[in-house]
């Protein structure tokens, strides 16, 4: 895989390496703006992270991270968890996503988003997500959602 070349990175059926793919995804666009970084992965999960920044604040009074940053983080992590479970890149888009915010992500704290793919059918990937500040036992948000595979998508 050529990390400088998005076409080879995102070609249907390309063997999936979350760290390598994220290195590309965090270079451009929204992932680049948020500086989304690879954290770790398992068989059916991928964890990414975003550092706190003052331009990502959702409440200037407290400095907590904007909740939408957590959505972007979990959107990417859960999407990647499907490719991780499939073992290959397959073009797909988010169909729906739900987040429950247990608590805000405090000022200065790096936020981690772990996406877990618990089931895949031919067309649909079913995912859950957990956001935390370094301790998975102290989550700040839970997510659930579905992704739909794009047929005939040309890279």
């Amino acid at each position: 895989m050529d990390i400088e070349n998005p076409v080879s990175t995102f070609t249907e059926g390309t063997p999936f390496d979350p760290e390598l793919v994220n290195r590309f995804m965090s270079k451009f666009g929204h992932g680049g703006f948020l500086n989304m970084e690879y954290s770790q992965h398992g068989e059916d999960w991928v964890e990414l992270a975003i550092d706190w920044r003052d331009d990502l604040v959702g409440d200037p009074g407290t400095g907590v991270m904007a909740s939408a940053v957590v959505i972007s983080l979990l959107d990417n992590a859960t999407s990647m968890s499907i490719w991780q479970k499939r073992g290959a890149f397959v073009p797909q888009v988010t169909m729906d996503l739900r987040l429950d915010y247990l608590r805000p992500s405090p000022a200065g704290k790096r936020v981690y988003g772990r996406g877990i793919c618990y089931h895949i059918s031919r067309k649909i990937g079913f995912v859950r997500g957990i956001a935390h500040n370094g301790d998975l036992e102290d989550p700040l948000a839970y997510a659930s959602g579905t992704f739909i595979r794009l047929e005939g998508w040309q890279s």
């Binding site: 995102f10 451009f28 666009g29 992932g31 703006f33 959505i71 972007s72 983080l73 990417n76 996503l97």
Partner: peptide, 13 residues
């Protein structure tokens, strides 16, 4: 560019 997701489309986040 700051809000682009996959090439040619906005990021869902």
């Amino acid at each position: 560019q700051k809000i682009q997701g996959r090439p040619g489309f906005l990021h869902g986040g």
